[in-house]
């Protein structure tokens, strides 16, 4: 059954009466099934959680898997001080995936499960003392802004380093001892994220500097460059970074294994963060500040554990 309006939520809940064995669950309609999530929808999700935060012990958000990492990272930034569990999950079996020939073999064993197992796990996690945003999917509970897409076709569609896996499902949900804690909530001032013209570029062996030049000419709100370089910037790119810097376009360079520092104030190197978490943070920072250097400062500071255990930046 699909949920297309608030009127459908109760009928949908009636199909999973077993949820009442875990918690008293109140469904809240945010958007119809299949709608492609957009940036204004992130704001609505955050507002809904905030609207109900005093009356509920935890929150479970169901959303599509394609954009789950972006949504979960964004929520981890804006709901940092909520001090209540916000658990994100979704169905591993979209109609498109079920129809895909190559996925048929991998999904055949799960065709009766759909969202149900993930939903039960997520609701159980939302009853624990986990005061942060997490993803409960397959048999793992993962820190929301440290998750990444798994390269394998399995019910575990998301993956993370072991230190960022907060718990696992076996005969119940077993959280690591450090995952459960009590935190005093703080007053939340929601930052409304506005859609921004954020250009994402990936440097690869056939990358043409002209692509960066074109991006700069369009005067975007920011440029995010993903690289894998350890031998320094090619001259042509060095020049273009200086052009972007002079035009006061904030540029963030994500270089996962080695940070290439520049002395340009509007160009920031970061590492140890996923592209999805960085993208969401860039949008969040652009909504918080106009000055490019403040935007970059906000991005490079560890806000909700998105850089892992240690803050990783090089400037």
């Amino acid at each position: 059954m699909t949920v297309n309006s608030a009127n459908d939520t109760q009928a949908w809940m009636d199909q999973v009466p077993e949820l009442a064995l875990i918690a008293k669950v109140e469904p809240v309609f945010v958007m119809p099934d299949g709608k492609h999530i957009e940036i204004p929808d992130w704001n609505i999700l955050a507002q809904k959680v905030l609207q109900y935060h005093k009356d509920y012990d935890g929150f479970v958000i169901l959303q599509g898997v394609d954009t789950m990492l972006y949504t979960s990272a964004f929520l981890s930034y804006v709901l940092k001080d909520l001090a209540k569990p916000v658990v994100i999950t979704g169905s591993p079996l979209t109609p498109t995936l079920q129809a895909a020939k190559e996925a048929e073999k991998a999904t055949i064993n799960y065709r009766n499960l759909g969202v149900r197992a993930n939903l039960i796990n997520a609701i159980q996690v939302s009853t624990f003392k986990v005061p942060e945003v997490t993803i409960a999917f397959g048999n793992q509970v993962i820190c929301a802004n440290r998750a990444r897409k798994s390269p394998n076709i399995s019910f575990n569609m998301f993956d993370a380093d072991e230190r960022d896996v907060m718990g696992r499902v076996d005969f119940g949900i077993k959280l690591k001892s450090e995952s459960e804690k009590t935190v005093e909530p703080k007053k939340i001032h929601l930052t409304e994220v506005k859609p921004a013209n954020l250009k994402i570029l990936t440097i690869h062996p056939t990358f043409e500097p002209e692509e960066l030049n074109e991006a700069i000419k369009n005067l975007p709100d920011g440029i995010l460059i993903q690289t894998f370089m350890q031998e320094g910037w090619p001259e042509s790119l060095q020049y273009l970074l200086k052009v972007a810097n002079d035009k006061e376009i904030p540029v963030v360079v994500l270089n996962p294994y080695f940070a290439l520092a520049t002395k340009l104030p509007n160009v920031q190197m970061v590492s140890g963060i996923s592209l999805e978490a960085l993208y969401a943070k860039f949008l969040w920072a652009l909504s918080k500040a106009k000055n490019p250097q403040i935007v970059l400062q906000l991005i490079s500071q560890n806000r909700a554990g998105e850089f892992g255990l240690e803050e990783k930046k090089d400037k």
Partner: peptide
Amino acid sequence: DIGYLLAYAMS
């Protein structure tokens, strides 16, 4: 865990 196990068994 009991509610969880029962819910899982039901599903």
